[in-house]
């Protein structure tokens, strides 16, 4: 197990190193600098600005400095946004994104499990078809289309909830629903498939034979076992949430990481783009790793198999 963890950590490190290196050199290839065209600067003033950003050094030196800073959590200084350090920008903005992502993941997974469970209990009945349809719609319809629908119906037409902005709990409702649809659909499909399989297994027959109540079978023997593999899809779910958060934050004007990225792209603020990209990459890789390790902890069968390797 320890060897496995070390191996995974090593791969994680390599991946992040490659991403950082590739994105650094890609950003160097792009045109654009912190010097605004409209700022009429003298040659010496320009030199001072370039010096401040360290853009006067040869590229390899810049690379070494950047990587050195990265280890210390320093992502450089933003070209735009009043020259704030990128790390500060990201730290300021991680709150809303994390809150939304967490709410969406919890709401989506719980609703999805319930939906999938209902479908598997009433298999091939009308409830099953309803929940399967919801799941297909949820996996298919892009989250931004769904967000538009919610915004139009609940904010513009009915005026029940704010159209956009951020601050109170009511501002989080629509974006959370829009983000939660995809995890919900994934969880529903997965739970249904697993549950159907589990309910046909021998230990369920044993439980029935010894007179366990139907609710005991479903909740204690069935659902518990069906949910173990669900841990594996939480990783991809979190990933799709991050993709979704970019557009959802843009639509609902939420001051989060995704919105920051889109804005940075518009103004060619390369240090911020890179910082955001690296942070996304780190989160992705870390989540997948944690989920994989967690899976081994939850399911003893996998831990044993991993240990014997």
């Amino acid at each position: 197990m320890t060897r496995y963890i070390l191996r995974r950590l090593w791969y994680m490190f390599i991946t992040l190193f490659i991403i950082a290196t590739v994105s650094f050199f890609l950003m160097k290839m792009l045109p654009g600098s912190p010097l605004n065209a409209e700022d009429k600067l003298s040659e010496s003033q320009k030199q001072i600005v370039l010096e401040k950003y360290g853009l006067n050094d040869p590229v390899p030196v810049q690379y070494a400095k950047y990587m050195g800073g990265l280890v210390k959590g320093d992502l450089g200084i933003s070209f735009a946004f009043d020259n704030t350090p990128v790390t500060d920008i990201l730290v300021d903005r991680i709150g809303p994104s994390a809150l939304l992502g967490f709410q969406a993941l919890v709401v989506g997974t719980l609703l999805g499990i319930l939906l999938g469970l209902t479908a598997s209990i009433f298999r091939n009945g009308p409830l099953d078809y309803t929940s399967t349809t919801i799941a297909v719609l949820g996996t298919s319809i892009p989250s931004f289309v769904f967000a538009g629908l919610l915004q139009y119906v609940f904010a513009v037409k009915l005026g029940l909830l704010p159209v956009a902005l951020w601050g109170e709990f009511k501002h989080t409702i629509l974006p959370t629903i829009a983000l939660a649809i995809h995890p919900m659909a994934t969880a529903a499909r997965f739970t249904r498939t697993e549950m159907v399989e589990v309910l046909h297994s021998n230990y369920i027959t044993t439980a029935r034979a010894k007179g366990v109540t139907e609710s005991g079978i479903i909740w204690k023997h069935g659902l518990r076992n069906a949910l173990i593999p669900l841990v594996t899809v939480i990783g991809p779910m979190a990933v799709s949430l991050m993709t979704g958060s970019m557009v959802i934050e843009q639509i609902f004007a939420i001051p989060g990481i995704g919105e920051q990225f889109v804005t940075s792209v518009m103004v060619n603020d390369y240090p911020t783009i890179m910082g955001t990209t690296l942070m996304f990459a780190f989160l992705f890789v870390a989540i997948i790793l944690v989920i994989d390790l967690l899976y081994g902890l939850i399911d003893p069968r996998i831990r044993l198999a991993g240990g014997s390797k």
Binding site: Y11, M12, I14, T15, I18, I19, V22, S23, L26, M27, M29, L30, V239, M242, T243, F261, V265, I273, T277, F280, A281, F284, V285, I288
Partner: peptide, 19 residues
Amino acid sequence: VEVLVGIPNLVIILLMMLV
């Protein structure tokens, strides 16, 4: 492939689109 799979799809796509 193992290294490539580790790199998140979204990050690659966004970087490529910028360049």
